[in-house]
Design a protein around this nucleic acid. Structure first.
Lengths: 130, 130
DNA sequence: TGACAACTACGAAGGTCTTCGTATATAATA
DNA sequence: TATTATATACGAAGACCTTCGTAGTTGTCA
C-alpha cells in the first residue's frame, strides 16, 4: 500500500518546493531571493521557519556542513503531483481518475497538438495493455 | 472571469455537500445519520456547526420555515469539482490541464472502455473545434 | 580586535478548520 | 400540565498554517 512516505505539502511549502525543483539544492537565502523576484513579499525568517518545518516533515533534507545550510527537495515534482492528484481524486472525484480526466477535457480547451499527444499516449497504453 | 462566487469547500464541508448532492435537501439530522451510517464518527452538533458556517459562506441555503431547517447545496457537484480542479492546476500543474490529464493517464490504469470514452470525447472536440 | 553582516533558532501571534459541550427554545407525550 | 426528546445557537478548545520579531552565533573585514 504505502499511502505516502511524506505528508502532502501545503501551499507555502509547495511554493518553496517549486524553487527547489527548478533550481536544485538551495540555501534559504536563494529561495527567499527567488520568491521575492517572483513578486512574493514574505520575510526571510518566514521562509527559514517553513524550511525548518519541512525538514522535520521530511519534505526536504538539509546539508548543514556549511554555515548556510543547503536544502534539497525530497519528493520529486512528479511524486508530489501524484500525491496531490490522488488527494483530489479521493475528495472530489469518487476516487476515479477517469472522471477527473473527462472533467478536465470537457472544461478546458485542449489544442489540436494536445489532443494528438493524448491520442499517442492512449495508443501506447493500448499496446502495452490488452 | 468570475473566479468563483463561493470559496472552495474544505474537507469536512465537502463530505456534507456529498450527502446533499446525493440525497437532495436535508436536515442536519439527515446528514448526521447518513454520515454516521457511512462510518464517520462525528457528533451531531459538529455537523450543525459546520452547516451553519457553510450557510454563512454561501455554500448552502437554509429553509427555516420548519423547526428542523432544511439545507440545500448551492454549488453543483460539477461546479465544485471544477473549482477544486482549477485550484490544483494552479498550485501544482503550472495551470496546465493538459499536464494534469497526461499525468493522470500515465499513473492510473485506464480500462479499454475508459480509453474508448476518452477517444470519443476527443473526436467530439475535434469536430467542434478546428 | 572590534564592529558589522548574515545565519540559525525559537517563541508567539493571528488566522482557519474541526470538534464538542452547554445553554436555550420548542414540540411531543404521558 | 409536567416531563422528555429534539432543535438551534454559541463559545471555546485544540490542531495546523503562515507570519514575523527577537535573540544568539558565526564569519568578514577595516
Amino acid at each position: 500500500m504505502t499511502p505516502s512516505p511524506v505528508k502532502n505539502p501545503t501551499d507555502a511549502e509547495l511554493r518553496i518546493l517549486h524553487v527547489l525543483w527548478r533550481h536544485g539544492p538551495c540555501t534559504v537565502r536563494d529561495v527567499h531571493t527567488e520568491l521575492s523576484r517572483e513578486g512574493a513579499l514574505v520575510g526571510y525568517t518566514t521562509i527559514l521557519k517553513l524550511m525548518q518545518i519541512m525538514a522535520e516533515k521530511g519534505l526536504v533534507v538539509r546539508d548543514d556542513s556549511a554555515r548556510a545550510h543547503i536544502f534539497r527537495a525530497v519528493p520529486s515534482e512528479e511524486t508530489a503531483q501524484n500525491s496531490l492528484m490522488n488527494d483530489l481524486l479521493k475528495r472530489a472525484f469518487d476516487g476515479s481518475a477517469q472522471k477527473l480526466v473527462m472533467h478536465a477535457l470537457e472544461t478546458h480547451k485542449a489544442s489540436p497538438e494536445d489532443r494528438a499527444e493524448i491520442r499517442r499516449l492512449l495508443d501506447a497504453l493500448e499496446r502495452e495493455n490488452t
